[in-house]
Simulated assay, not measured.
Amino acid sequence: MRIEQRPTNRLRAALYGAAALLLALLAGLTAAAQGHAAAQWQAVPPPAPAGLSAYVPFDATSAVARSTVQTSTTCLPCEYEHTLWTRQAGAWRSLPLPPAGASTDVLTGTAPNDVWAFGRGERGDFGQYHWDGSRWTDRTLPDFEVLAARAVSRTDVWAVGNYRESGGDVPGAVAHWNGSAWTLTKLGAPDAWTNIKAVHVVSAHDVWVVGSGGGRLYAAHYDGASWQEVALPRLSGLSATANAVTVRDGEVWIGGTDRNIYTDSGTPRAFVLRGNGTDWQTTYVPVPAPTGDASEDRMSVQALAVHDGTVWAGLYADRTKDRGLARWNGSAWETAAAPGATPGSEVTALYPTADGTLWANGLHYPHAYLKGYAASLAPSA
């Protein structure tokens, strides 16, 4: 009998061990899923009732931000009043505006004493200014309109947009600050108005910029020595613009808006390209509960970022149909509500920080009041 029981006992022990291992694995997966699900967006308390029309984080408790209030009752043109802030150790401090009536359309920086502001002045001229903690210094490149910027360090700042040539041409432009001076490079066809609207810096030898020119998507890559234009596919519409770019594990993701401008039913659609710089795949973010009305169903990708290994897209859509965010699940886009407190909130910017946190900035509905918000999403445990 003992000889017959030994295999049975061994088999039973093996089965018990396998079952225990399976239960442990399931428990671990459940805990991980619960930990991921438990991660919730945390709102940043704004410094003023106007909210945060821009928020650029440096780390968990410091940032540069802007509040915006519309001061005109009509928009012929619209008039706004801007207030700048720095967040230091979680507390807000007001920041003087740059001189000469300069606007602060684009903000970036690395610390409360290393802030850059870009915009158009009261007389229509463009300006770039740097704040060192005590005063603003004019670092303007004339005729350079900055549409996006990214400060990697105090000696490594990238700004992109367009350059107004004296002859009327408007090529795309990229400027790099090395700590003492700007170096400006013009990009795009000389006879096409090119707007570069986003920049992503992987390293000093790997920088991507995207936008549009001549009604088509535009992209260029910097390898540390020179810029090379990257061919992108023509999408289903006849007018497309790229608003965002990010890189995950060497794969480039480009997002924006695609629309056929020659048809009345040409609904602007939110697209994302992903590829290796040569071969590209195109996906579209689905519109929640579409109506078939182009003015109601319009949607675009405004920001892209990587969080917990997943690509996230910040969205603009029309009114309460806006879901605000989308996540790539490996085969398709899944939309989610924006961190904003009201239906219709949009996400205009996404910023991952070194600690693994994802920050979102956007506007509440109605957009006319510019009541912006900022929120953070911690990395999963």
Rank of each mutant, 00 (worst) to 15 (best):
Q5S: 14
R6C: 09
P7Y: 01
L15C: 14
G17S: 14
A18F: 12
A18R: 05
T30G: 10
A31H: 13
H36I: 13
A37M: 15
W41T: 03
D59N: 13
T61A: 12
V64Q: 06
A65W: 07
R66N: 03
S67N: 01
L84K: 06
W85D: 00
W85K: 02
Q88P: 02
A89V: 07
G90S: 06
A102T: 12
S103R: 11
P112V: 02
N113R: 14
G127R: 08
Y129M: 13
H130W: 09
G133I: 07
R135P: 06
R135F: 12
D143Y: 12
R150V: 08
R150D: 10
Y163W: 12
Y163G: 00
Y163T: 02
G167E: 09
A173S: 00
W177V: 02
L187Y: 00
W193Q: 09
W193F: 12
V201D: 05
V201M: 10
V207D: 04
G214V: 04
A225M: 12
A225T: 14
W227R: 05
A231C: 04
T241N: 10
T246G: 00
V247R: 04
W253N: 01
G255C: 06
T257C: 10
Y262V: 11
P268T: 03
F271I: 05
V285Y: 05
T291E: 03
D293A: 13
D297A: 03
D297M: 07
R298W: 15
Q302T: 10
G309I: 08
T310R: 13
L315I: 08
D318S: 14
R319G: 06
S331Y: 12
G344P: 02
S345A: 13
G356D: 02
L358G: 00
L363G: 02
L363N: 03
H364N: 15
Y369W: 15
K371Q: 15
K371N: 15
Y373S: 08
L377H: 01
A381P: 15
